[in-house]
Design a protein around this nucleic acid. Structure first.
Lengths: 223, 223
DNA sequence: CAAGATAGTGTTGCACAGACACTATGTCAA
DNA sequence: TTGACATAGTGTCTGTGCAACACTATCTTG
């Protein structure tokens, strides 16, 4: 007996989240291995059904936390996918989000519907369930575009970071090397980050000054 | 007896469309007066429930046609709104679209759920149902932004148009006057439009050359 | 202490955007 | 017919912002 009844047919609504990070100088996305049918055993984006008393963004954050243990990421709505046959079970409309996290969010844990959780480099994606490859492609495209006119890149940084690290993020996402002096000039001219006064020593070379975002939480449109 | 039953609660899903045009040198949006509750008699965006066998974009086009008689517009997904209490009836998630049409789409006709259809200038909007004011504001913001880095503006033009008309569109949306020579230089440098060879005579002054988009249907990102 | 690795720093040239004013061609009214 | 009016159409200059470019500084390691 199905207890939730309506006068007209209703689609199901899910959120799916493409969480990106940078690992080993490559853009990577977090996937889960599905425990249940359909696409059982297949890799997919974390996500799940919207509950009736939560807004879409809360749903995305909840599903991400439940299935992967990840919290505290930068999140933004991406696009809503709704082709009638995109899920074999029933009509499911998916509101997709993309999220960014610093690479130090390590070892996410498989939870609830996920048999396994892992980072995949964008150039080495496995077979994906549903239309999730399309979702990831769109998210990457959006990410690249926003790099130029917004401050999304800071979503990949920890609280304190060096300009070299930030430059690596830009280079990885754009897929090309950038001039060090021009990059530093550009970033510092935005007047969004400031020196912490300390520096970080890694490797056999000169330590780098550490910087911090001046007004955390504010992702701005620039220019 | 409600015939559509599910194991879990399902939200309803609608599409809502903000159709813009330029009328009397002002940006205007097409609204309908609601025939039914809730917000009966209130102005609202055209839109309605997604049917189970149509994709979201088809739903938007169908609802726009049914309620206003308007067809053949440029359409793009805007954002998905899903706060739990945004509709008093039940949980309704709205996938919103914005659309553009040349000002010569006159006299849309009220159909189905619409008691009345009318254009409203953006600076003279009436009370609006649901969160539709927020939707329109977001659409206007997106429109302004895309004006700079895409060719959306052509969505407001008829098949043949003058550079003066095109400039008026840019000026209206940006809310500021533009230099004629710089504007023409910029637009022609895009190499997207070409002279038709003919000209149009309106008013007591020199006729203007007519232009046409070279590759219709292609809305491009520029620069 | 020499080699190696990354940090950090300014100047120049060029392309593009914005400021700017006059002539051309039509209508209309006196 | 002609002068007033209205919009169409056209080029130059100047400043600003972005890309190209090389060397010194500071640390570790052998």
């Amino acid at each position: 007996m199905k207890p939730f009844c309506y006068d007209y047919p209703h689609p199901a609504v899910t959120t799916d989240i493409a969480l990106f990070t940078i690992r080993e100088e490559r853009l990577a996305v977090l996937l889960i291995r599905r425990r249940a049918a359909p696409f059982q055993g297949c890799w997919a984006l974390p996500g799940g059904f919207v509950e009736m008393d939560e807004c879409l963004e809360d749903c995305a954050l909840r599903e991400l936390a439940e299935e992967t243990g990840v919290t505290g990421v930068y999140l933004e709505q991406l696009y809503t996918f709704g082709k009638p046959d995109r899920d074999p079970r029933e009509r499911i409309i998916s509101v997709t989000y993309y999220a960014l996290a610093p690479s130090e969010i390590l070892s996410p844990v498989a939870g609830s519907d996920a048999a396994e959780v892992a980072w995949f480099a964008m150039d080495a994606l496995p077979e994906l369930a549903f239309d999730h490859r399309e979702v990831i492609a769109l998210a990457q495209q959006r990410l690249r575009a926003k790099l130029d006119y917004s401050t999304v890149a800071f979503g990949f940084m920890q609280e304190e970071f060096t300009l070299g690290e930030l430059q690596k993020v830009y280079e990885t996402i754009r897929g090309e090397a950038l001039d060090k002096r021009n990059f530093r000039k550009h970033i510092l001219a935005l007047d969004l980050i400031g020196e912490t006064g300390t520096s970080r020593r890694v490797g056999n070379h000169r330590p780098a000054k550490l910087y911090r975002v001046q007004h955390p939480g504010a992702v701005l449109y620039i220019k």
